[in-house]
Simulated scan of single mutants.
Amino acid sequence: MNRISIIGAGIGGLTAALALHDVGAHVTVYEQAKHLTDEGAGIQIAPNASRILCHLGLRHVLAADAVAASTSAYRHYRTGAVLKINDPSESVRRTGFPYWRIHRADLQRALVSALARRAPDALHLGWQVLAVETGSDNVSLVFSNGQRVTSDLVVAADGIRSTVRSMLFARDTPHFEGYVAWRGLVPMADLPERLRTMGGASFGGGRFIVNYAVRRGELMNFVAIARHETWEEEGWRIPSRLAELQEAFTDFHDDVQELIGHTPPDRLFKWGIFGRPRLPSWVQGRASLLGDAAHPMLPYLAQGGAMAIEDAMLLARAVANGDGHVSALQRWETARMPRVNRVSDASAAMAAMFHTDVDAYDPSRDVSAGRLPDLATFDALTAPI
C-alpha cells in the first residue's frame, strides 16, 4: 500500500486525501494550524470541480449547504447598466453536474467529515513541517514537535506561502500583484428584497466587485478588488474599516453602495493578492506541490480552488496506475501543467479586462468563454494521464 503524506488541510489537500484513499493509498494529512475555524468566504465550484466532489461521495452534503448558481450579470460600475448576462446552466446541462456557490468553511467541513469516515486517524492538526528529505526509496518529513515521518510520497498543498515549496525549489517569495481585495459576508435577512437576488459583478475605473449567495442562501458573499501600488501587511484575514472600502468604491452604483453598507464590521476583511513565479516543475523526486503551492493564480475566473481539486483527482489516478511513485508524479505533472497554465493565463487576461476601460468592454471578446471553451466541462475522471 502506498504511504502518502499530505501537507495542508485546505481544499486541495483534503480532496487529495480522499481521492488517494479511494484508490487504496494510506494517507495522512498534516496541518500546522491547531484548529480548523469557520473562516473564509465564498468559493465557486463549477462543474469541472463539482464532478470530482460528487464522485467522492459529497453531492448531497454539499448540495445541502451550497447555493446553485443562477443567471447573473456584468454591470457598468457607475450606471449599473447590464453589459453581459452569464448563464451557468449550459455547462450544467452538458456535464450533468452542479455549479455551486458555497462558503469555503462549509466545503472544508464536508471534506474533513468525509475523510474522518474513511480514515478516522488521517488528519493531524498542529503539525508544522520543518524539513523535507527526499531519497531514492522514500521521503522523510521532520516536524516542529520532534517527530519524523517516512512516506512513499509527499504532496505539499500548503498554499501560496508554501514552506515546502521553499524547501524543494528555489527560495522565490510571493510577489504583490498590484491588487488589494476585500471580502465581506452580509446576513441575507438584513438586505432589502431587491438585493437578495442581485448576483454578478460590477467593474470599471480599475475596480471590480462580485457577489453571490452562500450558506443555504443565508449570507451574501462579496469580494471587491482594486488596484494598489504597494502592500506590506501579512495575512488574508486583516480586519478592514467599512469606511475604507466605501471610499475605494464611492462612485459605484447604488446597489453596490447599499450592499457594502450592510456589511457587519466583524465580517469585513482585506488582503493583498500575491503570486509566485511559474515553476518549470512541481515535482522533486518523491515529493510534489499541489494547488496554490504549485500554481497560484489571480481569482478572476473563480478557478483557483477548482484547479486544486482537479490536481487531486488526476494525481490519485496517476498513483492508481501502479507504475512507480516517481513515474506517477511525472505523468501527473505532464498531464496537468498545460491546462493549469492556460487557466492561469486566462485569469490574468480577465484581470486586465476588468481593470481597464469598462466603456471599451466587448462581450464577444470575453476571455472566459473565448479562450477556454472547456473551462467548466473538463473531465478529470477521464482525461488522459
Results as ranks from 00 to 15, higher is better:
Gln303Phe: 06
Ser281Gln: 00
Gln284Ala: 00
Gly275Asp: 15
Ser281Arg: 07
Ala294Met: 12
Pro296Val: 11
Asp292Arg: 09
Trp282Glu: 01
Trp282Gly: 02
Ile309His: 08
Ala306Gly: 01
Arg276Tyr: 10
Ser288Trp: 08
Gly291Ser: 06
Gly272Val: 15
Pro280Trp: 11
Gly275Ile: 06
Ile309Arg: 09
Pro277Asn: 08
Ala293Gln: 14
Pro299Trp: 02
Ala287Arg: 03
Trp271Pro: 04
Ala308Thr: 06
Arg276His: 01
Leu289Ile: 07
Ala302Tyr: 06
Gln284Pro: 02
Gly304Met: 00
Gly291Met: 09
Leu301Pro: 05
Ile309Val: 15
Tyr300Gly: 07
Glu310Ala: 11
Leu279Met: 15
Gly305Ala: 12
Ser281Leu: 09
Ala294Leu: 09
Ser288Asp: 02
Gly272Phe: 15
Phe274Gln: 13
Gly291Thr: 03
Phe274Gly: 04
Ala312His: 05
Leu298Thr: 09
Ala294Cys: 11
Pro277Tyr: 11
Glu310Arg: 03
Ala293Cys: 11
Glu310Lys: 13
Val283Ile: 05
Met307Tyr: 07
Asp292Trp: 14
Ala294Thr: 02
Met297Ile: 00
Trp271Tyr: 15
Leu289Tyr: 10
Gln303Asp: 11
Arg276Gln: 12
Ala287Gln: 02
Leu279Val: 01
Tyr300Asp: 10
Trp271Arg: 15
Phe274Lys: 06
Ser288Gly: 12
Ala287Lys: 01
Ser288Arg: 06
Ala287Glu: 05
